[in-house]
Design a protein around this nucleic acid. Structure first.
Length: 287
DNA sequence: CGGGGCTCCTGTGCGC
DNA sequence: TGCGCACAGGAGCCCC
């Protein structure tokens, strides 16, 4: 369910809620959520620990403790951290020193909580590509990273070991804003398109964070409130609706089993040159 | 190594 | 109303 903007929103809230609090009790109602570790050891490593910092890496929340160790929260599709009173439906409940609770809800049970000593201990964290809103991510890096990549650009944007944090909604939204067809091979992108792609990756994610994420279906913040970026979404889930920029209808196709939304006119599979710079000096087109 | 397909689960919405 | 099917913001594993 949550992608980078939603997880970033949750992280900011959890940082306020949890920093300085000590875990006094842990209750695991569904051991599957902790399946990588034994529930007993999981609890033993957390009780008595004080939260020093809450951070984010890609779509994962990282809760770090003064006494050492980090709690990695992978929300997957329906994971929902909630702060306040204890919830009976929560899969895992953390009681805090101030009498409040951190609940972990997860109807589909795909999410995972794990305690690690160092980031090196987590193959998942190790596998992640750069942060799209971090210093390592820039046009030069992107241009180089797209070289020799034959895979469709949308698949690559969603590949967490390529770039960490973009999921199914934002991949479609970013490519629509760029006018790039989701099935274009990554290596076919021209310099102007790569620059635009960089700008829209950063632009869409920042804007979505500003609006506290998208609550299309089940996403809620730690207080149960919705984000509002879904009001600004242009193509995701809008197949058979009119494109916001032209008279064509938004299409849905499936790529690697995931719904993909785009405008066949604004995002042609054979890109029409968008700018004069794509014309050669003699006036002929590159394509 | 890269990338596609299948799978883990539960809930919801739709057509019949 | 009820049933069956399609589909859902993720990612691990297997396979070529």
């Amino acid at each position: 369910m949550p992608e980078l903007p939603e997880v970033e929103t949750l992280k900011r809230e959890l940082s306020k809620d949890l920093t300085g609090k000590t875990i006094s009790h842990v209750r695991i109602r569904d051991t599957m959520i902790v399946s990588r570790q034994s529930p007993k050891k999981f609890i033993k490593r957390l009780v008595g620990k004080t939260v020093s910092e809450v951070s984010r890496r890609g779509k994962a929340i990282v809760i770090s403790f003064r006494q050492g160790d980090h709690l990695i929260v992978q929300l997957a599709m329906t994971g929902q951290p909630n702060y306040g009173s204890a919830l009976k439906t929560a899969k895992v409940v953390f009681e805090l020193s101030n009498g409040q609770y951190l609940n972990y809800n997860d109807t589909r049970r795909f999410g995972r909580l794990s305690v690690i000593k160092d980031f090196d201990d987590s193959p998942f964290l190790q596998s992640l590509g750069p942060e799209p809103l971090g210093r390592d991510f820039n046009v030069k890096w992107l241009a180089k990273a797209l070289q020799r990549r034959k895979s469709p650009i949308k698949s690559l944007l969603m590949n967490q070991s390529f770039l960490a944090g973009i999921g199914n909604i934002y991949a479609s939204e970013i490519l629509f804003r760029c006018g790039i067809h989701p099935q274009r091979p990554a290596l076919s992108l021209k310099d102007n398109e790569i620059t635009l792609l960089y700008q829209e990756i950063v632009g869409v994610l920042k804007e979505a964070i500003k609006f506290k994420g998208s609550s299309i279906n089940t996403y809620r913040n730690t207080k149960g409130l919705k984000g509002t970026f879904h009001n600004r979404i242009q193509v995701y889930g809008k197949h058979l609706e009119k494109c916001p920029r032209c008279p064509f209808l938004i299409q849905r196709i499936f790529m690697a089993g995931r719904s993909t939304f785009f405008c066949p006119n604004c995002q042609p599979i054979r890109p029409f040159p968008a700018y004069p710079s794509t014309f050669a000096r003699d006036g002929s087109r590159e394509w």
